[in-house]
Each structure stands twice: as structure tokens, then as C-alpha cells.
Amino acid sequence: MSDKKQTVSGKRFGEFFSNIGGLTNFSMMFFKNFLIPPYDFKEIKKHMDELGVKTLPIVSITGIIIGFVLALQSLPVMVRFGAEAFLPATVAISVCRELGPVITALIFAGRVSSGIGAELGSMRVTEQIDAMEVSAINPFRYLVVTRIIACTLILPLLTVFVDFLALLGAYVALMLSQNLTFEYYMGSVFSSLTFVDVMPGLLKTFVFGFIVGVVGSYKGYTADKGTEGVGKASTTSVVLSSLLILLFDMVLVKVTVWLWPV
């Protein structure tokens, strides 16, 4: 019994590392293709539009709620320490540095990585990718490169939007419990935010967007034959991309702290 358990977790472990190997190769292939023009701007724009439309509603709601909840949760603590005045600053810094980028990325991963995995997976299984290749069209450039670029570019935009909505949500929460004008709130938000609070948080979303694009494409592009291959490509890409987002977040935060010590 315990033997069996061990082999299962051993297999998972091995699978994770073979995924990392495959993803590394796949990313290299992306950069090799990325460095050679021309770029298919029309396809990239089409994918960005689709991704935006697909994720905007859910990330917007999430943005408002995290800001609202964060403010509500922080309020009693700040009151206890007599630091209510710092509340707008605390919320703004938490949102821009960490919550906005990571939560947006995780939701984006759930929605988009699975979508790309399923889309490319079904194209692989129904031989559409083979058909492209025999018509002398490079399917990697047409299908994969454009999607990865679109993901990498759209996530930072979504994040800025989510950060902004989260700050609004926080204002609503504070307004309900305290007398606070919008001008005063925004004034203290913007005077508290520094370069180090905003830029690293934004820059890492390019990495997260890239992760979502690469993982979804990799899983779909290399999907196994048969319809179950498509489902597997779609679910495993969500798990893998979410995990990688959190891992990279840890590393990037560490790097940020090292580059800009307190």
C-alpha cells in the first residue's frame, strides 16, 4: 500500500521535472523564433483582444473585492496601533507590490492557460497542426509564438487595471466606515507609492504572462492522441502554470528586495 503511494508520488515528481525540461526546450524554441522577424501582428492583436474580452469581467470583480476585503481586514489592526492614517498607503503598497500582480496572474492562468491548452490540444489531436505543417506553414510561429506574445503583453495591462480597481474597492470599504474624501484617499495613495512599489510588481507580470502562454501552449502543442489528451492538456496547464507563477514570484520578490534593500 505505502509502496504504491510512493511510486505514485515518485511518478508525479518525475513528471514535474520532465515538464520543466520540456518547458525549457519549448521556451528556447520560442526565443529562437521570436528573434527572427516578421511578426504576425494581426494574429497577436487578435489573441490580445480575445484574451482581454475573456478575462476582463472576472479580473475586474476580483480586483474590487480584494481591495475591499483588504481594507476591511486591515482596518481593525491599524486602529489598534493608532495608525489609521496609514491605511491608504498600506493597502496601496500591498496591492501594487503583491496582491494585484499575483492574483491577476493566477486568475489569468486559470482562464487562459487552460483555454490555450484545450485549443492547441484539439488542433493537435485533430491533425490541424500537422495540416499546417504540410502546407509549408510553420505552426509554431503561427499558433504558439503569437499566443505567448499576446499573453506576455496583455497581463501587465490587466494588472494595472486590477490594481486601480482594487484601490477603488478599498476606498469604498473605508468610506463606509470612516469619513474619508476621495481626494484625500487618492492623495495619500499616490504620495505613498514609490518606484519600487510599482515597477517590480508590474515587471513581474510580464514574466507571469509569459509563463501562462508557454505552459498552455506547451501542454496543448504536445497533447497526446485521443480526446482525453485535450482534457489533460487543459487541466495540467492550469496546475503547472499556477505553481510556476508562485515559484517565480518568490524568486522575483527576493531579487527585488536584494536590488532595492530597505
Binding site: 485549443e119 484539439s122 488542433m123 485533430t126 491533425e127 490541424q128 500537422d130 495540416a131 499546417m132 504540410v134
Partner: peptide, 11 residues
Amino acid sequence: FLFQGAALYDS
């Protein structure tokens, strides 16, 4: 090349 399922690009 005519594939078994025709492999039309479904998008």
C-alpha cells in the same frame, strides 16, 4: 494531404 478527419482549421 487530405487528413482522415479533414483537419479543417476550426477557428
